[in-house]
Write a protein that binds this DNA or RNA. Structure first.
Lengths: 193, 193
DNA sequence: GCAATAATCAACATTATGTTTATTATTATC
DNA sequence: GATAATAATAAACATAATGTTGATTATTGC
């Protein structure tokens, strides 16, 4: 997805800009953050920003996509290893929960972001795409409109739980959340037909 | 909440501005909508906008709050009528679903809005505040951290379902959605302790 | 070391914002 | 229907952010 070898200066600049934005999002709403704010915080020239991003929404979008790509990669790795037919747990959940825990600050500001692009939408879609097939196969469930509604319920519900997790200080351990998510998935799949 | 008698000109102006914004949100992302866009569409002077709202986020916020206030009022009315201890259904759901159906265009653009304030957050909070007490009493459930996680799951999950409902054309009838929501609430409450 | 290129700096035109003042049009109320 | 109150208009303004350009300096990969 990314160029394997970007110039060191580019890597440094992008990292500085992203860190600056994450800092600022902790301090004020995204909509009130300007390109000038970001470059001043990163101690870079304003023009430099435009060498890499078109506007503030572009850089935010790219931060979001990186996080979600990392999570998707964990799922893909897990898919190869796992025989889906026998186990009832989802092995990818543990590394994902640990990843979210490790990146709690950035995940929290993305998921709580009041004025921006659609991190939650993209996250829900990721869960939807990766889970619906697995669940359907496991529980021998059909593609009905009714079940589509329930999937929308479950997938956004899981994000609600993760959101709560990130908001509750001190945060529970990844293992605890994995347990709760698996439990809720088991219970909820009972509504599917 | 609102002044009982606003000048007719003010009522007209506010209505024109709100309709113009709703129209524009169907055409492009909220973040790209300017005050000029709104007043041009409403065929009003740009200065007039500032007589009533501070910026685009302010008017959006007020549209959101109106919708949610109307829903809250339905719940309040229902609370007075209902004896909570015996029934297992939630009578407010039907009028709420009908209200959402009647205002599907505006609700859809608020719930799908990619770049704005927090309609979904506020909506989730409304459900949370109004449902948690009822459910806790009904199922004799305690205030544990674990249950808080589940409430976050259920409340955002319901919004996921409503979102799906609004996206699916042609929309299902309010009665169908009420049935699904009640079913999911019954099933889900099984995870509470 | 050197060619390539990223970052800086200063300057610029463009656009949106938010405010002000004087003027016109509409309203509520008597 | 006349009138005082006030909402909407129009034009002008300062301010600030945006996005771009061209020349210069600094860093990088090889």
């Amino acid at each position: 997805m990314e160029n394997i070898k970007e110039d060191r200066r580019i890597r440094r600049t992008k990292k500085l800009l992203k860190h600056a934005l994450a800092q600022l999002m902790d301090e004020k709403e995204f909509k009130d953050i300007t390109v000038k704010d970001i470059t001043e915080r990163a101690d870079l020239n304003r023009g430099t920003f435009y060498l890499h991003y078109t506007d503030t929404y572009d850089i935010l979008n790219k931060i979001e996509n990186e996080i979600l790509e990392n999570i998707q990669n964990m799922i893909n790795q897990d898919m190869e290893k796992t025989d889906m037919t026998d186990s009832d747990s989802v092995p990818a959940l543990k590394p994902i929960a640990e990843y979210i825990m490790d990146n709690a600050d950035i995940c929290r500001c993305l998921i709580n972001n009041k004025a921006s692009v659609d991190f939650i939408d993209k996250f829900q879609n990721l869960i939807y795409v990766n889970c619906s097939d697995i669940i359907k196969r496991r529980h021998n469930v059909k593609n009905t409109t009714r079940n589509e509604y329930y999937f929308s319920f479950i997938t956004l519900g899981i994000i609600g739980m993760v959101k709560k997790w990130l908001e509750t200080q001190p945060m529970a351990s990844p293992d605890e959340i994995v347990f709760l998510v698996e439990q809720i998935m088991t219970y909820s799949s009972a509504v599917l037909k």
